[in-house]
Amino acid sequence: MKKALLFLSLALVLVLGACSSKNEDASKEPEKDGAAKDSGTITYESEDGPIEVPANPQRVVVLSSFAGHVMSLDVPIVGVDSWSKDNPRFESKLKDAEVVSDEDLEKIIELEPDLIVGLSPLNNLDRLKEIAPVVTFTYNKVDYLTQYVEIGKLLNKGEEAQEWVTDFKSRAQETGEEIKAKIGEGKTVSVIENFDKQLYVYGDSWGRGTEILFQEMKLPMPEKVKADALKDGYFALSSEVLPEYMGDYVILSRNSDGDNSFMETETYKNTPAVKEGHVFEAELSEFYFNDPLTLEYQLEFFKENFLK
């Protein structure tokens, strides 16, 4: 009888021990799940401090001019600003994306984003943060290529972005040497845009290919442009003074369907750049950004026009 009781006691101990072991394992399961969940996020050091964001975002809303940066890294966009949506070169990648702004809170909620990217400052920032993690960038706070690397880090693809930057700088600088050899050292270049019946000339860091021409290729700009547009990035012009800002070569960004009547004036037609066929016309909607997709297009545009 004693042996039977001893056997039962031992069996009970083993059973309780097994149950305890199972309970310990079970208690560890949430930790494993938690670890897996944590591995699905990264911490990005933003302008406003560290922000926890998805490690592999799949539903990004872009409320600014950074759509091309995100698309170039093959990250899906579900909502985008109207300027990016209207870019013909982005059409295929953004065909299913909804047009949204920082005022369209209900529409953004319906898109169920896992990350929101925008220009600083954003309207309704606190309310947007309730929908998804929000990361904003100040335009031109860093140079255009560093901006891409930062967005790469945000999307957990920093190394990929840096590799493209290194390669692009090399190709752009090499093309710049070819252009200078072709047109001659010291020939000046202007980047001019006709937008909504207003003419602008641009410095060296405001899209429209300015970063490539002036930062990478080191092509000179006219002194008048340097004096008036370099500091702020752009300068508004009247058609009467336009010739003063036109270099030996001109990149003219314009809307082909807009009012380009200034091009029919004698003032414009009699400039040396026009007479010598040194005005290269680009479609405004395809040309104003400085994301990698647009930069690649701009570089090819410069090759085709300067080196033809």
Rank of each mutant, 00 (worst) to 15 (best):
121 P>I: 03
170 S>A: 12
144 Y>W: 14
93 K>V: 01
150 E>M: 09
111 L>M: 12
134 V>E: 00
177 E>P: 03
138 T>E: 00
128 L>M: 08
100 V>E: 09
108 I>R: 11
159 E>K: 15
149 V>G: 04
93 K>A: 12
129 K>L: 03
164 W>M: 06
125 L>Y: 08
116 I>K: 00
95 K>C: 03
120 S>A: 13
114 D>V: 02
108 I>F: 11
163 E>V: 15
140 N>W: 09
175 T>K: 14
167 D>S: 14
95 K>H: 06
98 E>L: 08
127 R>Y: 07
163 E>C: 10
145 L>I: 05
95 K>V: 15
149 V>Y: 05
90 F>K: 03
113 P>V: 09
99 V>Q: 11
86 D>I: 11
89 R>E: 13
97 A>D: 11
156 N>I: 06
130 E>M: 14
154 L>A: 04
132 A>T: 05
116 I>N: 00
140 N>L: 06
146 T>E: 13
102 D>W: 07
97 A>M: 08
97 A>K: 08
92 S>T: 13
146 T>S: 14
159 E>S: 12
145 L>K: 14
96 D>F: 12
101 S>M: 10
161 A>N: 02
103 E>N: 15
92 S>G: 08
125 L>I: 14
166 T>S: 13
136 T>P: 00
123 N>D: 11
174 E>N: 09
176 G>T: 13
175 T>Q: 13
94 L>E: 09
173 Q>N: 10
173 Q>G: 14
111 L>N: 10
133 P>I: 06
174 E>A: 12
166 T>R: 04
157 K>G: 07
144 Y>E: 07
95 K>L: 02
96 D>A: 15
139 Y>T: 08
120 S>P: 02
126 D>G: 06
148 Y>N: 03
126 D>C: 07
147 Q>Y: 08
125 L>C: 01
130 E>T: 06
173 Q>R: 07
122 L>F: 02
106 E>I: 06
130 E>V: 02
88 P>K: 02
130 E>A: 10
167 D>I: 02
173 Q>P: 01
128 L>D: 02
169 K>V: 10
149 V>T: 11
139 Y>A: 08
128 L>F: 12
128 L>K: 01
127 R>D: 15
95 K>F: 12
99 V>R: 07
119 L>V: 05
175 T>A: 12
172 A>L: 05
92 S>N: 10
156 N>M: 01
117 V>W: 03
118 G>R: 00
174 E>L: 08
121 P>T: 00
151 I>W: 01
101 S>E: 05
109 I>D: 06
126 D>L: 14
136 T>A: 04
106 E>M: 12
146 T>H: 04
162 Q>T: 10
123 N>G: 06
86 D>W: 08
123 N>A: 13
172 A>I: 10
141 K>H: 01
119 L>W: 06
172 A>R: 13
149 V>F: 07
147 Q>V: 01
119 L>D: 02
130 E>K: 11
126 D>E: 15
154 L>M: 02
133 P>S: 06
171 R>W: 04
159 E>W: 04
150 E>C: 00
164 W>T: 03
171 R>Y: 04
161 A>E: 10
94 L>T: 09
131 I>T: 11
176 G>L: 00
139 Y>S: 05
107 K>L: 13
141 K>F: 07
101 S>F: 10
148 Y>V: 09
93 K>L: 11
123 N>L: 06
95 K>Y: 11
176 G>Q: 02
160 E>G: 00
140 N>E: 14
109 I>W: 03
164 W>R: 02
177 E>V: 09
99 V>T: 15
156 N>P: 05
